[in-house]
Nucleic acid binder design. Structure first.
Lengths: 150, 150
DNA sequence: AATTTTTAGTTGTATATGCAACTATATAGT
DNA sequence: ACTATATAGTTGCATATACAACTAAAAATT
């Protein structure tokens, strides 16, 4: 009964499915190219390539993860020689995370894969359409944010 | 160095962030309303409310999950009295999953939350913008699908 | 009909994630 | 200066997820 859904449900579903397909494709591409790293670790590495030395908690905030989740990712990456931790001089509670040379090399491979992927993925899209889409998604984000501020 | 990203990266990031915000909001809303269920179980329950009696493997395919992942979700929901399994008469390998009365009642509460949420979340969006966004996301999905068919 | 292959589901192992509780250090308030 | 509070990070526990290997049943092949 009632297999008809209100129309606004569709947009949410589509966003979710698109995201899922993006992440699956990326995972498969990285595996196919022999990159022995997960998507999440890869994206984190990309961030550290730009902001090496960032404080762990800040990194969690920026990447919108729980600090425990981030800590465990970092631990795995550290064991893999992609990053290393260093206690902050001024604040001995805090740890800074640095990317290693191995990490930088891997990042470049990831970036290559992403570039190729993103070229394909926007085939047939007009700039105008992308702008409107970005804008729509931004509006949704703002709307969701406002819910919390009430 | 090079903190500048190609523009097409932005769209992907925005899709990802929007999705993340959607799921976080939904999780918080369900918790706030006292629904003792995860987002994933909730969405699965909604599907089962429409297609009660579906074969497990089919359900995994539709919801785009690995069959092991789905099986474990179902097991938890079964323990919680939201669904039950029944071996198919004709094909004794297969199991059909049915929603319980308790499951149906919970589904209605979830649907109420979703309706309220989706009304807020599309504030200020014109129908036209939503259409273009849906279309853009659909194109991206098609582009990603084609990658595999090569 | 007997064998092989495919399919549905489960179990083992691994990753990513978040909440609660904890430790240690830093900051604020008195 | 001492105490209370806040913050950075870790550990324990739980969920969701996927791949590989397995069992059992069905379908296909010979």
């Amino acid at each position: 009964m009632s297999s008809k859904e209100p129309q606004q449900f569709e947009l949410v579903k589509t966003i979710g499915k698109t995201f899922k397909m993006l992440t699956m494709t990326l995972r498969d591409e990285m595996k196919a190219k022999g990159l022995n790293i997960t998507r999440q670790q890869g994206m984190l590495l990309r961030r550290l390539n730009i902001q090496s030395g960032i404080i762990q908690n800040e990194l969690a905030w920026i990447t919108e993860r729980d600090k425990t989740s981030l800590a465990r990712l970092i631990t795995k990456m550290e064991k893999n020689g992609l990053v290393y931790r260093k206690v902050d001089e001024k604040d001995k509670r805090a740890k800074r995370v640095f990317i290693t040379e191995k990490g930088r090399i891997l990042t470049e491979k990831i970036n290559k894969i992403l570039s190729d992927l993103f070229l394909k993925f926007q085939r047939g899209l007009k700039e105008n359409e992308i702008d409107i889409t970005m804008n729509t998604l931004q509006t949704i984000q703002n709307n969701l944010d406002n819910d919390f501020e009430i």
